[in-house]
């Protein structure tokens, strides 16, 4: 119990002291996970919407696959992306391994299925409600998918947030493809893992407290936005 109190105090100290290295680590974590979330949304949301609205052979199989991929182990994703980006791998010539870009790629692979699967669920519900009206107005299925993506934008925010939450809390994949290089690819989770390795448990926990606080703050802001939007748009 004393350790947890110590960690809370330490976390407060670190934040109030405005440690620039800590700030850089937090900023990198946010930038990497935010970029990955954005790319995942650009890929996963249209895909999820087409899975919800579309009628094509293999649709059910894809739905099951994406639901299954939601549980991808980060380490496996990390390893896969590592093998792709490694100099000996197919994309080795770009020299992306151990860069923030590599981390964005790994997190994107990790969370795109989550965003796609959650989007599919949301759009399927929307499709049930709007299907007849949209078809009556003459919307094609792709057009309907686009319309419903826009229409469900506030619910989809939650899908994006779920992806972001998984990305920023993940350590296995970014550790492997980022290499946890000080000042280059060290993010909050890999720092926590490193400090745990050094046996500095209070510091590791303090960093964890900061991570949780950041994630909570983002969720709270998103929740408030969604409440406001629902009140406004119904």
């Amino acid at each position: 119990m004393a350790e947890i109190t110590n960690s809370l105090l330490l976390a407060t100290d670190m934040v109030t002291a405005g440690d620039s290295r800590l700030a850089a680590i937090v900023a990198l974590s946010l930038a990497v996970s935010f970029s990955a979330t954005l790319i995942s949304c650009l890929l996963g949301m249209p895909l999820g919407a087409l899975l919800a609205v579309g009628r094509f052979p293999g649709r059910r199989v894809l739905v099951v696959i994406f639901n299954g991929l939601m549980g991808l182990p980060p380490v496996v994703v990390g390893l896969l992306v590592y093998l792709l980006l490694s100099r000996a791998g197919p994309l080795g010539q770009f020299g992306l391994l151990f860069t923030p870009t590599a981390m964005v790629i790994a997190q994107t692979v990790l969370i795109t299925p989550i965003v796609a699967a959650l989007t599919r669920q949301v759009i399927e519900d929307e499709w049930r409600e709007y299907r007849e009206q949209l078809r009556s107005l003459g919307a094609s299925r792709t057009r309907a998918a686009r319309t419903l993506l826009w229409n469900a934008r506030f619910s989809l925010f939650t899908a994006a947030l779920a992806g972001f939450g998984r990305a920023i809390a993940e350590v296995g994949a970014v550790m492997i493809v980022g290499g946890n290089i000080d000042g280059v690819t060290r993010v909050m989770t890999t720092t926590i893992a490193l400090e745990t390795s050094k046996g500095d448990l209070p510091l590791a926990l303090a960093l964890g407290v900061i991570l949780i606080t950041v994630v909570l703050a983002i969720n709270a802001a998103a929740y408030a936005l969604r409440q406001w939007a629902e009140n406004r748009w119904g």
């Binding site: 935010f34 970029s35 954005l38 923030p100 870009t101 964005v104 280059v184």
Partner: peptide, 24 residues
């Protein structure tokens, strides 16, 4: 306004990747 947010986020993300690659 959501389109604007998407556009801005895209820009921010591109800027970040650019900075990251410059860093490289």
């Amino acid at each position: 306004s959501t389109l604007n947010i998407v556009r801005r986020s895209l820009l921010a993300s591109c800027a970040f990747l650019l900075v990251a690659s410059l860093h490289a």
